[in-house]
Each structure stands twice: as C-alpha cells, then as structure tokens.
C-alpha cells in the first residue's frame, strides 16, 4: 500500500501542526526537574519517573505519527533525503560528544598526570605539591582517590571480557549489514533473522558490560570515584553502553516493523538510520577498546 501512494507525494510533505514536540520539551523539563530535585536531595529518586514516562510517551507518539505518514506514502524522495541528512548530522554531533570525553582522557594521560609527576615544565608542581607521586597510567592521582582505604585499585584487562565484547559488537556490525543486503534483495526471512541476531548481540553486549561493571564495583575497587582512571573509564564506557542500549532498542523497533512487513527494498530510511547509528556505536567502541582498555 505504501508504494501505491508514493507517486502521489510529489510535493515536499509539511505537517500542519503537531503536539509531539511540545510534549517532548515539556517532558524533558519535567524529567530534568526531577533529576535536579533528586540531586539536591529535595525529593527521592522516583520524582524522575513522570518525566521519563512522558518522554517515552512522546517518542512513541511522535514516531508512530511519522511511521504512519511514511506508510501512507506521504514522504517523497526529497523528504527521505532530509531525514538521511538529519540523521547523519545528528550522529556527527554524538561523535563530538564522545570527543569531549576522549579529549579528557588524552589530556589527563599525556599532560595532567605527567605534570603532576614532575615532567615537562611543571617540576615545581611535583616538588612542592606532590613529591611522592609518580607519573604512571592507570592512576587514581597523587591523593590515591578511591573507595579502598589504601587507595589501591585494579583494572579490567583488555583481553578478557572487553575483547569478547569487541567480537560481539563487530559481529553485530556484520549481521546488520547482512540484514541490510537481505532487505535490498527482498529476502525477508533472512532480513528478520539477521536483524534479530543483531538485536540479541546488542543486548548481550549490554549484559556483559553490566557483569564487568559489577565486577569492577564489588571486587576491583574500580568505581566512578577512583581518581581520573575511574572517571574517564566509567564516563566513556558508561555513555557508550547507554548508546548501545538505545541502539539496541532502535533495532528492536525496526525488527518489529520488518516483521510487520514495513520497509521496502527501495525505501527503508528507518532501517538505514538505525544501522548507521549502530555502526557509530561500534566505531566508538573500537576507540574505547584501544585507548581505554588496551594501551
């Protein structure tokens, strides 16, 4: 049915009005106010729930509207192109968000920690402020900031769970590509199978990441508060894990849609956008594996 109408959409579709954006803004406000009230210890944690629920409601509503319009064939190729460009630049902005944290990691490793250890131009920093500190990585700083009384901590070796996780994500990148080819070739069963595999691998990654965090928190003395190593480690892997979760949910939605027969070999922006997002999450992980876990 989608194809039948597509020809009619010779004009660039402009929605006449929509309640979703303002519901979205309001939900962000309520959610953030909830978080603020919690952080300021004004109210307990559950105050973020209403905002969160409203946000989910908004996403469901907004995307349902868009999917409905798309299925009715209201979007011509130009609209499709707008969506694609929009998604690409959105992903680019996400890349820059991660860049801030990678920047912090590189700055700490190659400037701040060496300076505190007396290298470069800051010998007095070391001599007068932190005479017993040595430049090394990983570190939780000259004051050995961390949960254990003696300030020690252990790190997660790269070639354990993280390497397995790398394999999982790389494989999921392959499966989503196979699904894409299947979609373009019209092999719906293969599409559904490989898409499902991708979703499963995504959630498996998140699960293993959870196992790793649990291990770090309960046994290694490695927490968010374990000096600069803990800070950069958890912020980078944490935001990444959050993005994987989002990506996996997106893939799941796409899977439900392909199961219902959405997406055609020619027109499947939603699928592609999600796949791009997935690849982005994948590439970020490679950066993490190399710079956070390995070298």
């Amino acid at each position: 049915m989608a194809q039948a109408h597509a020809a009619a959409a010779d004009k660039y579709y402009i929605p006449h009005s929509s309640p979703w954006p303002i519901i979205g803004s309001a939900s962000l406000f309520v959610l953030m106010f909830g978080v603020i009230a919690y952080l300021n210890e004004w109210l307990p944690l559950w105050v973020m729930l209403p905002g969160f629920a409203l946000l989910i409601f908004m996403f469901v509503g907004w995307f349902s509207t868009v999917i409905g319009e798309s299925q009715k064939g209201m979007y011509n190729l130009s609209v499709d192109r707008s969506f694609r460009m929009g998604m690409i630049w959105f992903i680019f902005s996400e890349v820059m968000f991660f860049a801030a944290f990678f920047g912090a990691l590189f700055y700490a490793r190659s400037l701040a920690v060496p300076w505190l250890g007396g290298e470069g131009t800051k010998i007095f920093t070391h001599a007068l402020n932190w005479p017993s500190f040595e430049n090394a990585w990983p570190t939780n700083g000259p004051a050995n900031v961390g949960p254990r009384a003696d300030g020690s901590f252990e790190i997660i070796p790269a070639f354990g769970l993280p390497a397995i996780n790398t394999l999982i994500l790389l494989t999921s990148g392959v499966t989503v590509t196979i699904a894409h080819h299947a979609l373009r070739a019209g092999h719906r069963v293969m599409l559904n199978t490989f898409l499902f595999l991708t979703v499963a691998l995504g959630f498996l990654f998140v699960y293993l990441q959870g196992v790793e965090y649990h291990h770090a928190y309960t046994e290694l003395g490695l927490k968010l508060s374990t000096g600069i190593y803990g800070s950069t480690f958890f912020m980078l892997t944490g935001f990444h894990g959050f993005h994987v979760t989002l990506g996996a949910i997106m893939l799941l939605v796409i899977w439900f849609r392909t199961m219902r027969g959405h997406m055609t070999p020619e027109r499947h922006f939603a699928f592609e956008a999600t796949a791009w997002y997935w690849h982005f999450v994948d590439v970020v992980w490679l950066g993490l594996f190399i710079f956070v876990y390995w070298v």
Binding site: F97, A100, G227, I228
Partner: peptide
C-alpha cells in the same frame, strides 16, 4: 561544538555529585 560543551558540563556534574576527579589534581585531573 555544542556537544563538547555538553560533555564539559556533564563532567562538572559528575565531579560535583558522583565523585569523579576530572578537574581535581588530587585524583590526577586538572
């Protein structure tokens, strides 16, 4: 650049509430 600002203030937030030390020498930050 706006995402970089978002990252920067997020680090402030965690330094303030969650014990990270991005910006404190004691933990190896700056």
């Amino acid at each position: 650049t706006m995402p970089v600002l978002a990252g920067a203030v997020t680090m402030l937030l965690t330094d303030h509430f969650f014990g990270t030390t991005f910006f404190a020498a004691s933990g190896g930050g700056d």
